[in-house]
Design a protein around this nucleic acid. Structure first.
Length: 575
DNA sequence: GCCGTTTTCGGCCCGACTGTTTTCAGTCG
């Protein structure tokens, strides 16, 4: 069950799509898109707002606010219903096909009565598109291909997968003569939790040799488009990679531009326009005479616009431009701030590395403390027993010798369907710190899930809720309790929410981090490592935490050991 | 439809590439 803001945003986005498809005013369509984003990103539940309150949301004016009120009170939006009556739902689904936009979708519907992806495929195969204005043989083939891609991949890949591809391309291009700089931009640089395509940027005088080398890389499955400034390929694995080559002096402007997000760039360009300037990927220009002002570094571009440099992880048009203007950008948490990992496993349960190996890897990272949190006894497949857990603790205490890295003994407890955990208070009291996670019964009702999480937070020995939504990116949907109620319980009880750094989890997701932070929750950025190499996954968790605007003060494993221990004992004492 | 160190009207980010166009619309990011 999605929160009202998301339901309303979806309705507004649908309305915007239908305006575009029916050939309505493009600016009106964009207005509703903006409003949808504003509503989705708004911290307050829209269901609790009146007309006046709604109009405070960026991009929402009187007309949109009235539609939202109508929708929330009656479940219907008359204007939306009218457009739905004109355009079958399947027509809207067509614009998800790469290369097919609202105008072409409407042409297909108007001229051929096509109103679903299947009908479109059949029409193409039957040759019914020939003779239709704007639909040549090439377009028909591209559409078929687009449908294939869409059905096959669903579009997005894990950030770790995209990073591997990016690093392979960068390694190959960086060595070319004439390549002065090469890096990745786009959603990968912004640290999103999944990646639709990889954007690579190169600074070079001559683009041709770079483009040629790019299309010949072994990972290239097909070349989608190729020009002097931009070339797009799809890898053999199905991931799209766009390469842009810019002159070296345009590097900063180009990096800013291709990092996005699109919405952030629109916001920044609006500032440029108001100052009588023009910002493109080639630089910041004076509008009246096209004089180049700056372009070499991102810092210069932002500075010339009267803004401090904004971290890529914040560039989502979620208020970062206003914060930059007011000097209230957050001091974001970085990997260097992390003093220890608080969720790790060993081969005592389902890990693959030994206790000694894991501790050595933690020391190698320079951690000041390190928690071993193997699975608890209620997870039958892990075969944990009280005796094994106590034996591990004894061993750990014996290994705590060098004084540089403190060793914490913990466990990843299971939150049972009713919110209870594996052991009673007496046994739990022996641990230094505990994570508690949901590992089963994902299909409970939202009310049951809410009760379950809240009760877990109220347990004095539960310090961190592990991978709270339990989502597996591309494989398992998140559970959906009333998160605001859960976060309130976490904040009130001194229970941290985990930002699990594993690339197929990245859990909490960034939107929920923002909501939790608003409600005063603290966080722990952990890797959930099952092997020594997993400790490096921290970087992905840091990116997600930054996208949630977290500062070191919000993150308990940036704190000193003394402060961390106080966090644990304060909760126990309060009980 | 929204919005305002230029504004309550007249703008709304900007450029690249494709396909089908004979000068440009559509799509994408």
């Amino acid at each position: 069950m999605a929160r009202p803001n998301e339901v309303v945003a979806a309705a507004l986005q649908e309305y915007a799509d239908l305006i575009s498809i029916t050939g309505g005013d493009a600016f009106r369509a964009r207005t509703y898109e903006k409003a949808a984003r504003g509503v989705a990103g708004h911290a307050t539940d829209v269901a609790t707002l009146d007309l006046k309150g709604l109009e405070q949301i960026p991009g929402v004016g009187k007309s949109t606010a009235e539609k939202v009120v109508e929708y929330l009170s009656s479940g219907r939006m008359e204007a939306l219903e009218q457009l739905r009556a004109k355009v079958p739902a399947g027509v809207r689904e067509l614009i998800a096909i790469p290369g097919l936009g609202p105008a072409k979708a409407m042409t297909l519907h108007r001229e051929l009565g096509i109103s679903s992806m299947d009908e479109l495929v059949h029409a193409i195969e039957a040759g019914r598109l020939s003779g239709l204005r704007g639909f040549g043989a090439k377009t028909a083939a591209n559409i078929l291909h687009g449908v294939e891609v869409l059905r096959h991949s669903g579009g997005r890949v894990m950030v770790s997968t995209a990073l591997e591809v990016a690093e392979e391309v960068i390694a190959a291009l960086s060595g070319l003569p004439g390549c002065e700089k090469c890096t990745y931009a786009g959603s990968l640089r912004r640290g999103r939790d999944s990646i639709g395509d990889v954007d690579i940027l190169v600074a070079a005088r001559e683009s041709k040799p770079i483009m040629a080398a790019f299309t010949e890389l072994p990972l290239v499955g097909e070349v989608i488009a190729g020009g002097p400034a931009k070339t797009s390929i799809r890898t053999t694995g199905g991931l799209q990679v766009d390469l842009r080559v810019v002159p070296p002096e345009s590097w900063g402007a180009a990096l800013q531009y291709f990092t996005g997000s699109k919405e952030h760039n629109i916001r920044v360009r609006e500032i440029a326009v108001r100052k009588g300037l023009k910002l493109s990927e080639y630089g910041l220009f004076r509008a009246e005479d096209d004089t180049l002002l700056v372009s070499e570094t991102e810092e210069e571009v932002y500075e010339q616009l009267g803004l401090p440099w904004i971290a890529p992880t914040l560039r989502e048009d979620r208020g970062e431009v206003a914060a930059a203007r007011n000097g209230t950008l957050p001091q974001l948490v970085t990997a260097a701030d992390i003093r220890g990992d608080l969720h790790t496993h060993t081969n005592l349960t389902d890990g693959v590395s030994t206790l000694e190996e894991m501790l050595a890897a933690g020391r190698a990272r320079g951690y000041r403390y390190y928690a071993v949190t193997d699975h608890a006894k209620d997870m039958p497949m892990q075969r944990m027993t009280d005796a094994k857990m106590l034996a591990q603790r004894k061993k750990l205490r014996a290994l705590a010798g060098d004084g540089k890295m403190a060793l914490l003994h913990g466990s990843e407890l299971n939150i049972d369907p009713d919110g209870g955990v594996d052991w009673d208070a007496d046994f739990l009291a022996g641990f230094d710190i505990c994570v508690a996670s949901v590992h089963s019964h994902f299909t409970q009702t939202p009310a049951e899930l809410t009760h379950r999480f809240v009760k877990a937070c109220e347990n004095p020995y539960v310090n961190i809720i592990g991978h709270p939504t339990t989502r597996l990116i591309g494989r398992r949907k998140p559970v959906e309790p009333d998160w605001d109620a859960v976060f309130d319980a976490a904040a009130a009880t001194g229970t941290a929410m985990e930002v699990n750094a594993f690339p197929d989890r990245l859990d909490l997701p960034d939107e929920l981090i923002m909501r939790a932070r608003e409600r005063g929750v603290k966080f722990a950025i952990n890797t959930d490592s099952h092997s020594t190499v997993h400790l490096d996954m921290l970087r992905f968790g840091i990116a997600i935490a930054q996208r949630g605007w977290l500062t070191p003060a919000d993150v308990i494993n940036t704190w000193t050991l003394t402060k961390l221990k106080a966090f644990v004992t304060a909760k126990r004492r309060a009980a």
